[in-house]
């Protein structure tokens, strides 16, 4: 990443390709209680998934010689999970730069704001509505931190809801 110069002006925009949200296929997700310091393909379906057993309550698997206990966690209603990947290259098809003058000028600021250096794209590669949460030796249970985090959207809704007029 060539990021040495921290820019004082933040014009950048990361455009979300909304079409990818429509087409995103469901994904199988496991949240592991350990660090794996790499991002790369892994034969999860060959070694991990087949080893999952179902001793009630919950799930059990052996991973790197350790016993993990797991359970399914659902994404709160009204929300959908997406796996997003930043695109490598700027992709501005139809090259007509800097001519968005019709309509909402104020919305589009100085022309250079739409220059290639400022704009990049991110897209969803998959979607999810639940994932498997794993704990070391024990089932994470209701006190799992990520469960607390999943209550955030309903709190945020209250914080950011409009207040009634006087």
């Amino acid at each position: 990443m060539e990021s040495s110069d921290e820019v004082a002006v933040h014009k950048h925009r990361i455009h979300l390709r909304t079409a990818t949200l429509r087409d995103a296929a469901p994904v199988t997700l496991h949240l592991l209680p350990c660090e794996v310091p790499v991002n790369q393909p892994a034969p999860v379906g060959r070694f991990f998934t087949p080893a999952i057993r179902l001793p009630p309550p919950g799930l059990e698997v052996s991973f790197r010689g350790r016993k993990l206990r797991g359970e399914e966690v659902s994404v709160p209603p009204g929300l959908v999970g997406y796996v997003m990947v930043m695109e490598d290259k700027h992709d501005f098809s139809e090259g007509s730069e800097n001519n968005e003058e019709q309509g909402e000028q104020e919305l589009v600021e100085s022309p250079e704001a739409l220059e290639r250096d400022f704009d990049c794209f991110i897209g969803a590669t998959a979607s999810f509505s639940r994932f498997t949460l794993w704990g070391l030796e024990t089932i994470p249970g209701p006190d799992a931190k990520v469960r607390g985090a999943l209550t955030w959207p309903s709190l945020a809704a209250a914080i950011h809801a409009q207040v009634p007029e006087d």
Binding site: E2, V7, H12, I14, N39, V80, G81, D88, I122, F128
Partner: peptide, 29 residues
């Protein structure tokens, strides 16, 4: 000087990294 926010230009062949997001299913709904 405009590179600070530029997207991840991963070298060809490298695995593209993913981020997990929770978005509103549909604000209207």
């Amino acid at each position: 000087m405009y590179t600070a926010l530029s997207p991840s230009r991963s070298r060809s062949g490298t695995f593209s990294a993913s981020s997990l997001y929770l978005l509103l299913e549909s604000p209207g709904d």
